[in-house]
């Protein structure tokens, strides 16, 4: 089912001032896959996504997306190339309404009719958002905000969706809903997904493959099923 490599990191390093957060990350994602990055707090998972998106600049190495080198491409160019991120902590626009938030996801798009159709599609996935469409984003519950953040990213019609800890701070039942939708998005629309999670069990169950990150380095890469069976992983990340 998985096609060609669509996203590839080659030996990427990144710094915050003098602190090195990434120490040579290499990973690749093929078209149509769900790939997860797991690791403890502070391992560099969010930094990896921010470096892919060009918010954090790679100090070494290269990021390739859809056959292009995007290491030096500005962050605002990526959504129109089909690469969109749902950042950690959702980061919706709190004083804009739900509909305006979704509209922002389609900021670079011009065709009004298609944007409206996509908004309908998002409302189909998340009926809760339709009910609250004229409410300020900041007044939504945590789960609804996560739905809004995902919906907003979908409005850019991404080919690759980067998800940073969608389960953060949510009740298990909401987390399950959100993961179901993420899998639906992957299967129905063929959106490739790179998923960052601390909740390793959940993430690996939803993924084809997984990478394990420790202090800025990839320490293991394997099929999700093998990782789930691996005794070291079970001990370190699955709490056994």
């Amino acid at each position: 089912m998985a096609g060609d490599t669509i996203l590839e990191l080659k030996n990427v390093a990144a710094h915050y001032g003098r602190i090195q957060a990434l120490k040579g990350i290499s990973l690749s994602v093929r078209e149509g896959e769900v790939v997860s990055i797991i690791g403890a707090n502070g391992a560099g998972k969010s930094t990896t996504l921010m470096t892919i998106c060009g918010i954090v600049r790679a100090s070494e190495g290269a990021v390739h997306y859809a056959g292009q080198d995007i290491t030096r491409v500005n962050a605002d160019k990526l959504p129109r190339m089909g690469l969109c991120q749902v950042p950690e902590g959702r980061r919706i626009f709190p004083r804009l309404s739900v509909a305006e938030n979704l509209d922002m996801g389609a900021f670079f798009r011009r065709r009004k009719r298609r944007i409206r159709a996509d908004m309908e599609m998002v409302y189909e996935y998340f009926p809760r958002l339709r009910e609250r469409r004229s409410q300020a984003g900041g007044t939504l519950s945590g789960g609804e905000q996560q739905m809004l953040a995902i919906g907003r990213a979908l409005m850019s019609r991404p080919k690759v969706l980067l998800l940073d800890e969608p389960s953060l701070g949510l009740a298990p039942i909401i987390v399950k809903q959100i993961f179901d939708i993420v899998q639906t998005i992957n299967q129905e629309q063929g959106v490739t997904i790179l998923l960052v999670e601390q909740n390793a069990n959940l993430a690996l169950q939803a993924s084809n493959r997984g990478y394990v990150l420790e202090t800025g380095k990839v320490v293991m890469a394997d099929d999700a099923a093998s990782l789930l069976d691996n005794p070291d992983i079970r001990k370190a990340y699955l709490g056994e």
Binding site: C53, I55, A75, D76, K77, L78, P79, R80, C84, Q85, P87, R91, I92, F93, P94, R95, L96, M104, G105, F107, F108, R152, S156
Partner: peptide, 14 residues
């Protein structure tokens, strides 16, 4: 307005 609300998120939205 998006920049006012969250600059990084605005950048991520293009």
């Amino acid at each position: 307005e998006a920049i006012r609300e969250d600059e990084t998120a605005a950048e991520l939205m293009g």
